[in-house]
């Protein structure tokens, strides 16, 4: 408490703290992507997130150490209005959809719009189409390939995360034949990629289950973020931008902490 605080701050390995938020419809695999990235693990039966989970991961990019502070938000509709507090002051966002659910891409687009309108103007946004393992051909199949009900009748945004049907669907390896796998795909790579390009987003197709593409998401984000700028604008180990606002930010408005759209810069960068 009385120790000089300045000295250790200049150590070369001082990590750059990057606040990153995951957004997307329920059950698209946000938590699984984070789990893969942070613990290199996968759980088929991931429980739904309440509010938002918080994880950190340190990575090295060239000579810099990056500490991702990851807010993995709940996709459920009832937590929808909580999301601004997670993306405020975030330097990066990963918007996740499910390649087997076209509705989830539409939901992702509304997230992108909201971010571009209300989040930090310099925020780096990555669009990630998850669950590509479900649409990849798989070698060993012992199961007839029927498109499961989960893919077809789950179009409206439901409130569920890993429902039993979805879990069955996530066991994509067993789905088998190429044709059947491809038929599960509801969002083509081209369509999503084009949208991402239009809106200036990074784009990836990922599988939290196999790990495909997951690290790349975070790598490309790390490359695109102005790390030096963040480093310069934060003070000391405890001073990441997102954190500095920890006390000042939400408390600042007193009774009416401002999550209002009206107050934020209206700025529709994306026409989609």
């Amino acid at each position: 408490m009385s120790a000089p605080a300045a000295a250790p701050a200049e150590a070369p390995a001082r990590p750059v703290q990057v606040k990153l938020v995951l957004l997307g419809e329920s059950a698209v695999g946000k938590s699984s992507v984070v789990l893969r990235f942070c613990q290199n693990d996968f759980q088929a039966n991931k429980e739904p997130t309440i509010g938002a989970a918080f994880l950190t991961q340190r990575c090295r990019l060239e000579d810099k150490v990056i500490k991702f502070e990851i807010w993995d938000t709940a996709g459920q509709e009832r937590f929808r209005s909580l999301s601004p507090m997670y993306y405020r002051n975030a330097q990066a966002a990963v918007v996740v959809y499910d390649v087997t659910k076209s509705a989830s891409l539409e939901q992702a687009k509304t997230w992108v719009k909201e971010l571009q309108r209300q989040a930090n103007p310099n925020i780096v946004i990555a669009l990630a189409g998850n669950k590509v393992d479900l649409v990849r051909p798989s070698s060993d199949s012992d199961e007839p390939s029927t498109p499961t009900s989960a893919t077809s009748d789950d179009d409206e945004a439901d409130d569920a995360t890993a429902t039993p049907e979805d879990d069955a669907a996530e066991g994509g390896d067993e789905e088998g034949a190429v044709a059947a796998s491809e038929s599960r795909r509801q969002v083509s790579r081209e369509e999503a990629e084009e949208y991402a390009k239009e809106c200036g987003l990074l784009f990836f197709e990922t599988s939290a289950k196999t790990g495909e593409g997951v690290v790349e998401v975070f790598t490309e984000i790390a490359k695109k973020i102005p790390l030096d700028h963040i480093l310069a604008s934060t003070r000391g180990p405890g001073g990441a931008a997102g954190r500095g606002a920890g006390r000042g930010g939400p408390a600042a408005g007193g009774a009416s902490v401002n999550l209002n759209e009206e107050e934020s810069a209206k700025k529709d960068a994306c026409a989609c």
Partner: peptide
Amino acid sequence: KIQRGGVGGAASPSLSA
């Protein structure tokens, strides 16, 4: 650091910040 443009425009240098 003053966050600009985003939500919470009231973020300003303050005692707690």
